[in-house]
Design a protein around this nucleic acid. Structure first.
Length: 390
DNA sequence: TCTGGGGTCCTAGGACCC
DNA sequence: TCTGGGGTCCTAGGACCC
């Protein structure tokens, strides 16, 4: 058959909650929810918790009301990363063509491995899921089809703890009946627009002319029609990971505040942590963005671009200060503070014999990174980074 | 119900250049 | 005097994903 490809999508079920249950067997069979603070949302809910109507992205406060006896845990990202690495390792034992799309899901191209393993595709997929379950103690679901989108949608049908093989001839029939919102990329807004025009299922979307999709949803709409009709085929890419394009961190304060001096300190602290990550990765950023979310949930951000990528504290923190003044123009209390560093590239400045001051400042930045890595962020407080860049 | 955090990509308008 | 258009970069905001 021409161009017959076989893609397997693997997605761990209720990943964060499942890892917690694997690490603490006494949690098995119980309603486990992983979330940040009481001002946050649920990141993952075990299937036991879902029976009470809890789902991810639900405010923690609401989850507590629905499931008061449930177990609420703070996330342990280190453990999740370890389980994630092991899961992808298992997948790579069956094919080198594994694409990691997030901590708990990925694709693999099984086209070339069928002969290698001398087994039908569903058999291989089944073995992978069994290996994950037996070696990690967590359940994963799988979807197999002729392209990535169909495979991912198949996983959605198979969940939890299932496997679905959609043969290419059957895929349009099966997927065409699903609600249009099940297509990856159709969120709440797009769904509303589409429904207003009578487009309710994947099949409805596949059937409209691209010109109509474009008028409704722009370029994105055209792509969605191609996706819905199975014409948008993207290869499984196993490159370790494309270069990261931005580093950002946001923090929701424990309570809304009008103490702007405090907000500024938080922003600088976040920025220092991000810059340290840049330095650790040997990268620099050329765009600095400062963002606040006001108590009424409106967001405001201001950004500035530099001539060259940098990872020097002095350069970036001075920008944070001026952006801070440009951004906070209302006397409303602030809920969340965020910093984003983008335009990531190799840093322009390297330690240089002919710029002794700058070099020694840079060495100090790196020395502070070392100490903080060992003793924590609070171990060092440096106060004179407010200086304007020279 | 009362709304996280870390990302990617897209859009639209304005500046600036040719 | 009136009026271009394309390309590129920057900025602000928003949709979406997990």
């Amino acid at each position: 058959m021409p161009g017959t490809r076989l893609v397997l999508h693997v997605d761990a079920d209720a990943f964060f909650a499942s890892v917690e249950q694997a690490l603490q067997p006494e949690l098995k069979g119980k309603a486990v929810m992983v979330g940040g603070s009481d001002r946050g949302v649920v990141s993952a809910a075990s299937y036991e918790a879902r029976r009470y109507g809890v789902h991810s992205a639900m405010p923690v406060v609401q989850a507590r009301r629905l499931c008061p006896h449930g177990i609420f845990l703070k996330p342990n990202f280190l453990a999740y990363r370890q389980f994630s690495r092991r899961m992808f390792q298992i997948m790579r034992e069956y094919s080198p063509l594994v694409e990691v799309t997030s901590v708990d899901e990925g694709y693999m191209d099984l086209t070339g491995t069928l002969r290698l393993h001398r087994a039908p595709p569903w058999e291989i997929a089944h073995r992978i899921l069994v290996d994950i379950r037996s070696q990690l103690g967590i359940n994963a679901s799988g979807g197999m089809a002729g392209n990535k989108t169909a495979a991912k949608m198949a996983t959605g049908i198979a969940k939890p703890n299932g496997l679905l093989y959609l043969e290419p001839e059957l895929a349009p029939l099966v997927l065409g009946q699903l609600p249009v919102g099940t297509i990856p990329g159709v969120g709440k807004k797009a769904r509303i627009v589409l429904q207003r025009h009578g487009i309710r299922t994947v099949g409805d979307l596949a059937g409209i002319p691209t010109s109509k999709a474009r008028s409704l949803l722009g370029l994105w709409g055209e792509r969605l029609v191609e996706t819905a009709s199975g014409r948008r085929i993207r290869p499984v890419r196993s490159e370790s990971r494309e270069a990261q394009k931005s580093y950002s961190q946001e923090r929701t304060l424990t309570e809304d505040t009008v103490d702007y001096a405090f907000v500024r300190r938080v922003a600088r602290e976040i920025a220092e942590k991000l810059i340290a990550r840049l330095r650790a990765d040997g990268k620099g950023a050329s765009t600095v963005t400062f963002k606040v979310r006001y108590a009424d949930f409106t967001d405001k951000s201001r950004s500035v671009s530099l001539k060259e990528p940098t990872n020097e504290n002095r350069e970036i923190l001075a920008r944070i200060d001026s952006l801070f003044r440009k951004t906070i123009t209302r006397s409303m209390s602030i809920r969340q503070v965020g910093v984003k560093l983008s335009g990531i590239d190799r840093p322009a400045f390297q330690e240089d014999l002919f710029e002794p001051d700058r070099t020694s400042r840079y060495q100090r930045d790196k020395a502070v990174d070392l100490i903080r890595n060992q003793f924590g962020f609070e171990a060092v407080c440096v106060s004179d980074w407010t200086a304007e860049p020279g």
